[in-house]
Design a protein around this nucleic acid. Structure first.
Lengths: 119, 119
DNA sequence: TGTAGTGTGTCGTATACACTACACAGACCA
DNA sequence: TGGTCTGTGTAGTGTATACGACACACTACA
């Protein structure tokens, strides 16, 4: 009944880092992201759902992971991205739906064309 | 203290439609989107925050408005867009942030290039 | 054999979210 | 003047979100 992509992922990542550096015990990481150890424990095992965006971002820093990816695993989308979309909702809705089924390389090409300013 | 872009907007829109068609009384619309009249009343006046995504989508249909725009007014982003983003978080995060400050016409040009399949 | 560190189990809580139920006052009009 | 609309005010409810506090058992090691 419990999903647990998020919890499993961060537990694995934490234990990976822990083999090289003892600053990655559950308690240390919990302190680093400013939550109680028992809370983090339950999250890692999927006993509780993923925490707030704030805690996830702190976790991404602590574990040196990509924030957008961790948020996605938690079923969320960064509020800063949402803000960008909300400023021009029709435009961004169209873009995103248009790119939905495009292969990665095609999408990346769009990004580069835009970045290189050939417009 | 209360924002009220959303409530004000839909009230105005509803009253606009009401001048031509009496199916747009507060009670009728409330029934159409399946909420209590008092609830819709409070929302329109900004006494309560915007309703759920489900109700907003129903409202968009009832008032013949763009759903993504109404959701944005309500401070939300459609879950179907979020789902698309969450499937390839790093990719879409990059695209969206890249397009953030681009003028509409530049973004639209990208969309059209993609749609016309020159890739 | 104490003490420091490991993860975990139980219980409680504050806040927000998304509403419903019902009663009420005023306008309309038959 | 009785019924039928209109919008609105008051009060309460169920569920989800996002945690904290604290005690506990186990391991290591000095």
């Amino acid at each position: 009944m419990n999903d647990n992509g998020f919890g499993g992922y961060i537990r694995q990542r934490r234990e990976e880092l822990r083999t090289e550096d003892s600053d990655f015990s559950l308690r240390k990481v919990a302190a680093a992201i400013d939550v109680e150890p028992s809370y983090l424990s339950k999250i890692e095992r999927g006993d509780l759902p993923p925490p707030s965006e704030k805690a996830i971002l702190a976790l991404a820093k602590a574990l040196n992971e990509n924030p957008d990816m961790l948020l996605a695993l938690a079923g969320k989308v960064s509020t800063d991205l949402q803000q960008i979309i909300r400023k021009r909702p029709k435009l961004f809705a169209e873009v995103i739906r248009e790119l939905k089924d495009m292969p990665d390389h095609a999408v990346l090409r769009v990004v580069r064309e835009v970045r290189d300013g050939n417009w």
